[in-house]
Amino acid sequence: MKEIRWHGRGGDGAFTAAKLLGLAASVFGGKYGQAFPSFGPERRGAPVLGFTRISDEVITDHSQIYTCDCVIVLDDTLCDVTDVFAGMKAGGTLVINTTKSEEEIRSLYHGNDPVNVVLLDATSIALEELKAPIVNTIMLGAAMGATEMVQKTQLEEAIDSMMAPALREKNKKAMARAYDLVKGGAQG
């Protein structure tokens, strides 16, 4: 069972990304997936969480996610208000949209276990590819490049099945760019 937490702000598509991941893993990946938002009213701009579970077995767990294999942060200002490393498992991966240095981000971590930190200036990619600062699919691509929890083709199928036709191609392109970037070891 892989447990993933998404940090975003209301309206930036963090939960959409959490759902895309669950969809890619389950319907297109042959595994089981579960996705849920931080429950409550939707308020634009307020910090929100999204969660995804991926498993080879049926997922019956309906409790919250307390430990994470992967945490994805769509906006580094969230580090000021939330402990983004909370519950990180040993060897877990933090993927963050930032222009800050790795040391700055790592300094936020209070644990002793090794964690991976993947940095990406997703906002710049979004402005180039999507002409808007919407980074959810880019961060999804980056996270999958880093963890291989699902395959790129499965994410593409998920985007095709869930997003509006006009958004599909450019989001797939942006997602793939981040995927390749992270997979290639380069940090954007």
Binding site: G22, V27, A35, F39, G40, I59
Partner: peptide
């Protein structure tokens, strides 16, 4: 509420 209504599943 939420635990089921807003949780996505296969």
């Amino acid at each position: 509420g939420f635990t089921l209504t807003h949780t996505y599943d296969l």
